[in-house]
């Protein structure tokens, strides 16, 4: 869907993007991650053709990005905003028509979305009369009303209460199921794991990690498990096929975080433990995206210094 190839963007003394290449597959949800100032917004602006790269190329379905593509992209910027003095319905129509819809078509779809999000009674209100959450919903409608093939959402859940965040999340997933590709820029790692198929991690203008979420998490597996057994703490001799990283005692059960020795398997752990204790569970600890994010960014920053 989108091929970002060797993009460089220079602002005066600051290089915002340095030789960044990313592939975004059609029909997937793609997470664009990175700490503040990593270059996410610069990249998003380039895909939206708000700014142009100094060098490099962006391909949209294989064609070099051009003005004909803007109507096929829906963009929800991190800093939201609508005309404060304009009626909300008119405003949605205006933005939809700027994306190439006819007035009649825009009206039809706006009514549909307003009903779906239960904001039809706000049609004639001015933006300044609405709560922040309502404004966000209206802005979301403006982003998706022209049924874009590519949705670019920058922190889409900020400003929503948990109930409405869930509503919006389901709408995004539904659009994705209907075929829209979603680029999703966020700091909220839990939503990344829940929503994204693939991610790219930007840090200090460079891409430092990308790939499928599952594959990335798997590649960060290091044989760490959590073992829980009943009763009091038992002593383990040196023949255990694992090293104990951490032991915590609870009322009536114990938890051990362990790392399996090189060459041993999960079954070996069970073999060793079965005669010793009554096991409640044995579970692999796969690092969360959050942990990977922090680890990657920290190590990138230290190696940079």
């Amino acid at each position: 869907m989108i091929s970002i190839r060797n993009i460089v963007k220079q602002y005066a003394a600051h290089r915002a993007l340095d030789d960044v290449s990313i592939e975004i597959e059609k029909g997937k949800v793609f997470g664009l991650l990175g700490p503040n100032g990593a270059g996410k917004t610069s990249l998003i602006r380039i895909i939206n053709q708000i700014t142009a790269p100094d060098s490099g190329q962006v391909l949209f379905n294989g064609e070099p990005l051009s003005q004909v593509h803007v109507d096929r992209i829906g963009y929800l910027p991190e800093e939201r905003g609508l005309y404060k003095k304009m009626e909300i319905g008119e405003q949605i129509l205006y933005l939809a028509r700027l994306k190439g819809l006819s007035r009649a078509e825009a009206l039809k779809r706006a009514k549909y979305w307003f009903e779906k999000l239960e904001i039809q009674s706000w049609w004639n209100k001015k933006i300044e009369e609405l709560s922040k959450g309502m404004q966000q919903k209206a802005q979301f409608v403006a982003t998706v009303i022209h049924e874009p093939e590519l949705l670019i959402l920058d922190e889409p859940f900020t400003g929503f209460d948990p109930v409405n965040a869930e509503v919006i999340k389901n709408e995004i997933l539904e659009l994705n199921r209907k075929g829209a590709t979603v680029i999703f820029s966020t700091h909220r790692m839990e939503s990344v794991e829940e929503l994204c198929d693939s991610i790219a991690l930007l840090n200090l203008s460079h891409k430092i990690l990308d790939g499928k979420v599952k594959a990335i998490r798997n590649s960060y597996r290091n044989g760490t498990y959590v073992l829980e057994y009943e009763g009091d703490k038992i002593a383990m001799n040196g023949n255990a096929p694992f090293a104990i990283l951490q032991e915590t005692g609870h009322e009536g059960y114990q938890q051990v975080k362990l790392k399996i020795n090189e060459g041993s398997k999960v079954n070996d752990v069970l073999h060793y433990m079965l005669p010793l204790a009554s096991i409640n569970k044995l579970e692999e600890v796969v690092p969360t995206m959050n942990e990977i994010f922090i680890q990657k960014v920290a190590s990138a920053n230290t190696s940079n210094q």
């Binding site: 708000i50 963009y75 910027p77 939201r80 905003g81 403006a142």
Partner: peptide, 10 residues
Amino acid sequence: SRIVEVIISS
């Protein structure tokens, strides 16, 4: 009002 970024994406 920050609407400018939405508009210049169109």
